[in-house]
Design a protein around this nucleic acid. Structure first.
Lengths: 230, 230
DNA sequence: ACAAAAGTGTTAATCTTACACCCATGT
DNA sequence: ACATGGGTGTAAGATTAACACTTTTGT
């Protein structure tokens, strides 16, 4: 039983970062080919002896020097036979979160131009990457309501107002501050620190931490993280 | 830019059927190779000019003659480099529901032996198909609570008791009959028919239909299907 | 003293849960 | 008349939603 197949398999990463009340996406400028100078998701072909996940990490490191905080498989795009104009490529897309939108000095390898773009100010994208991005954004919006994933976009220690802004920015909704705080505290997965914000204006605010161990423990006991909004 | 890659891409379908208060999975017996006589999910290699979805439909038709009621992409299994002992295969798994567990007379093509197995009485499976199956079962259990997917496992017209049994079988939970009925009726996506069950025993029960148009309309208006259990 | 953001509590409305008896049919 | 499964309502408890004033700090 011999199989010949002329399909290439690639991975692409949709990396979200949150900074200054904006949700950003990491893109790199295409340097070659018909799509030169368009922007694209970080990605590339999978090596023969490489796990899909490892391929994603490798590409991220090679092209942007970034290490992600959260990574999960999103969807496999393989129904559009000509999504890549060169030949048939099936892409396994991954969804990633980072808690910093600083870009390190570019790594030596590919020296691609990587850049963060606010989700609502995207440039024209190569391939079907706009579709992929839309899928990822919807996934992020949904997950925020039933998985404590927002913390992966914030610093280890954060203000309640940061968290609240993150939710209201990404979900594009207003949130009642009191109800939001009450709800999150009721889960008992946040810890107060002794530290305070060092903002110029207004009353200093306590810094909080997400206690992942406690969350995992509660999960096993049947706890279900869920935040709804009016 | 030349790429050589020695990875094959396949699709596999996890087909669920519900019959006589049991959840069943469709498997086929392997006829060749090292895994001969083990059972496996329906699947096969993707053709060069074939959409992933079409590959699934084709394999289902060729190997079992079945047409599914619901199909969605589940997950892409590609991290285990030796999941297929012959060479590296990445498999895009699809999750399917049918409303009949009758198997047509075998189609002429491959004449594979296809058979339904109750989810809790599975034979030994080839490859990593037990992992895939577990993933699919979890997905089914979760989806049942937030998408009206159970109807795709039942006849077009069904009894409330069927629906209730389906939920309690798949979720492996007891359900309060009154609360369940109240909840579902409150969604206003079910229609009473004029017909009644023709069971021998007990009071005849009304047959209901799921009104998919109405559900889709409500969805657009922001309706959210959600069933929780005590 | 004022501007800015943080912190906090109550009430009404809604939703969820628990629970048991009568009804219609076939034998 | 009895066995079988179908059909229904209510009350207590929990959760959600709506809403505004006081506190702390820097200037």
């Amino acid at each position: 039983m011999e199989i010949t197949q002329n399909i290439k398999i690639a991975v692409d990463a949709i990396v979200f970062g949150y900074s200054k009340n904006e949700l950003n996406v990491l893109l790199i400028k295409q340097k070659f080919g018909a799509l030169k100078n368009k922007w694209a998701l970080v990605g590339g072909f999978v090596k023969d002896d490489e796990k899909l996940q490892d391929a994603v990490h490798r590409e991220l490191l090679e092209e942007t020097g970034i290490k992600v905080n959260y990574l999960e498989q999103l969807f496999t795009f393989g129904d559009d036979l000509h999504r890549d104009p060169r030949f048939r490529v099936i892409s396994v897309a991954y969804f990633a979160l980072v808690n910093s939108t600083k870009l390190e000095a570019k790594p030596d390898t590919d020296a691609e131009e990587a850049q963060w773009f606010p989700i609502h100010k995207l440039p024209e994208l190569a391939f079907d990457h706009d579709t992929i991005l839309k899928t990822a954004y919807t996934r992020l919006q949904n997950k925020l309501s039933y998985q404590p994933i927002g913390f992966d976009l914030l610093n280890n220690e954060f203000l309640f107002s940061d968290l609240e802004n993150l939710y209201s920015t990404i979900l594009e909704k207003n949130i009642d501050r009191r109800n939001f705080r009450k709800k999150l505290l009721s889960f008992d997965i946040l810890e107060e620190t002794e530290k305070f914000s060092d903002k110029k204006n207004g009353r200093p605010a306590k810094l909080f931490k997400f206690n992942k161990q406690k969350y995992n423990k509660l999960l096993k006991e049947g706890f279900y993280f869920e935040i709804k909004f009016a």
